[in-house]
Simulated assay, not measured.
Amino acid sequence: MDLKEFTVGELMVKSYIVSQAGQAVIIDPGAEGERLFDYLKNNNLELKYIINTHGHFDHIAANEFLKEKTGAEVLAHPKANLKFTDPKLNLSALFLSHKVTAPAIDRSIDDGESLKFESLTLKIISTPGHSEDGISIYIPEENILFSGDCIFANGIGRTDLEDSDFKELKNSVEKKLFQLPASCIFYPGHGPSGNLGSFKNSVWPAIS
């Protein structure tokens, strides 16, 4: 498995391209679609899935470009669909001078589901709190997690938004993410990667 990360857009979102055997998955193409597409093209990668960890504008803004260029299947939590098409719900109407929309989800994915991608398993974990449609993606074969805006290396996603809930985020972290191996490396929606055990022992006590 190859993993390439990009920092894109005004809010410096992390977009991740997971690839194997000429196939690719992109997680959270938040902006700069041409740059992401160029990487795919230059590395002879066929994009199979676009997966969004939630539907906020800074994580979906390049969906349309990549969908049109590649025909990849767009996957997200079922509750994300409203955000894709509503600039108020995806917060672009609140935070940007222009409105962001994205094509509708091709297939919804929810807690407990698994996607086979080449020799890898992408396990979907529902992690609401920052956003009610939040998901994280765990790849057991590599012991890595894509945590969206649920947790960051040094903190958590904000919970003061309309569909945020700190109690839900706390449950997502303690009842779901902390069930994964402490050695798990997680790749968040913003900032550097982290170690789940270190987060649990050094970061979480000051938050919870």
Score class of each variant (00 low, 15 high):
Glu64Cys: 09
Glu64Asn: 15
Leu66Pro: 01
Leu66Asp: 04
Lys67Leu: 10
Glu68Trp: 09
Lys69Glu: 14
Lys69Ala: 15
Thr70Val: 12
Thr70Asn: 07
Thr70Ile: 13
Gly71Gln: 12
Gly71Asn: 12
Gly71Leu: 11
Ala72Met: 07
Ala72Trp: 02
Ala72Ile: 04
Ala72Tyr: 01
Glu73Val: 12
Glu73Gln: 14
Glu73Pro: 03
Glu73Asn: 09
Glu73Trp: 02
Val74Gln: 07
Val74Gly: 00
Leu75Ser: 05
Leu75Asn: 03
Ala76Lys: 06
Ala76Pro: 04
Ala76Leu: 08
His77Tyr: 09
His77Thr: 07
Pro78Met: 08
Ala80Trp: 02
Ala80His: 05
Asn81Ile: 09
Asn81Met: 09
Asn81Cys: 09
Leu82Gly: 09
Leu82Arg: 14
Lys83Leu: 13
Lys83Gly: 01
Phe84Gln: 05
Phe84Thr: 04
Phe84Cys: 04
Phe84His: 14
Thr85Cys: 10
Asp86Val: 05
Asp86Met: 10
Pro87Cys: 10
Pro87Ile: 09
Lys88Asn: 10
Leu89Ser: 02
Leu89Glu: 05
Leu89Asn: 00
Leu89Met: 10
Asn90Pro: 06
Leu91Phe: 13
Leu91Met: 14
Leu91Ala: 08
Ser92Arg: 01
Ser92Asn: 01
Ser92Tyr: 00
Ala93Cys: 03
Leu94Asp: 08
Phe95Met: 11
Phe95Arg: 09
Phe95Trp: 11
Ser97Phe: 06
Ser97His: 10
Ser97Asp: 15
His98Val: 05
Val100Met: 03
Val100Asn: 02
Val100Leu: 02
Val100Ile: 15
Thr101Tyr: 02
Thr101Phe: 03
Thr101Asn: 01
Thr101Arg: 08
Thr101Lys: 10
Ala102His: 06
Pro103Ala: 10
Pro103Asp: 08
Ala104Pro: 13
Ile105Phe: 04
Ile105Asn: 00
Ile105Cys: 03
Asp106Ile: 13
Asp106Gln: 12
Ile109Gly: 00
Ile109Cys: 02
Asp110Thr: 15
Asp111Cys: 10
Asp111Glu: 15
Asp111Leu: 08
Asp111Phe: 11
Asp111Gly: 12
Gly112Glu: 08
Gly112Ala: 10
Glu113Ile: 07
Glu113Asp: 13
Ser114Pro: 01
Leu115Phe: 07
Leu115Tyr: 09
Lys116Ile: 06
Lys116Gln: 12
Lys116Asn: 11
Phe117Met: 05
Phe117Leu: 05
Phe117Thr: 01
Glu118Lys: 15
Glu118Phe: 08
Glu118Thr: 12
Ser119His: 15
Ser119Met: 13
Leu120Asn: 01
Leu120Phe: 04
Leu120Lys: 00
Leu120Thr: 01
Leu120Gln: 04
Thr121Asn: 14
Thr121Ser: 15
Thr121Gly: 02
Leu122Thr: 03
Leu122Arg: 01
Leu122Ala: 03
Lys123Thr: 04
Lys123Met: 07
Lys123Ala: 05
Ile124Ala: 06
Ile124Ser: 06
Ile124Gln: 08
Ile125Met: 07
Ser126His: 13
Ser126Ile: 01
Ser126Glu: 14
Ser126Ala: 15
Thr127Asp: 03
Thr127Ser: 05
Pro128Asp: 06
Gly129Pro: 06
His130Leu: 07
His130Gly: 08
His130Met: 08
